[in-house]
Amino acid sequence: MKKRLYLELENCIGCRSCLAACTQCGGHEERNRNYVYDVNPLVNRQTMPLMCLHCENPACARSCPAQAIQIHETGAVLSALVEKCIGCQNCTIACPYGIPKFDQEQNLMYKCDLCIDRTKDGIPPMCASVCPSNTLQWLTDEEIENKKKQFNLDNGKWVTSMPYLEGETNVKVNLPGILQGITKLF
């Protein structure tokens, strides 16, 4: 069954285990490909991961003059092909989330490929495997649908992927606020 990366930003504890784990993926050359931000470090300890959302119509790939950014059949937007990337950095500018990173020495773009050597066989990506807080999860569409229902607010305050994102994405996101929709046990 197809599974997706699902982000529940409310859960993030800022441990950056996802970044450490990213370096462990076989195809990642020990470089992490995503980000964790301190939202307002002088005020509180809120943090959030910024992961590639694997857009269905990715700006990075659209902007690439060399067609170096391929989309895998699973929907994963892959890292630039070494033999095709011309190092123009269009993708780093085009991506509305600032995901692609650039290696000056190799003149090569690199980005999250959703651990394609794992996810092509249904094994969760490293980040979602290790995430201690369940900020990053690897779920079926049904499980994500249930999450939506569980955290739905009737007052329109509740948020999920759309319409805040640039377009439809393979990765689904719950912005902070999930607890507002919970009925307390007592």
């Binding site: 504890i13 201690p132 369940n134 607890l179 046990l185």
Partner: peptide, 21 residues
């Protein structure tokens, strides 16, 4: 807990998701 025993956190957050405190 989040810094010293991080892998307890997915269970701890789940208490709140269930409506606990």
């Amino acid at each position: 807990t989040a810094e010293c025993h991080p892998t307890s956190m997915f269970r701890i957050w789940n208490v709140q998701e269930r409506g606990g405190y």
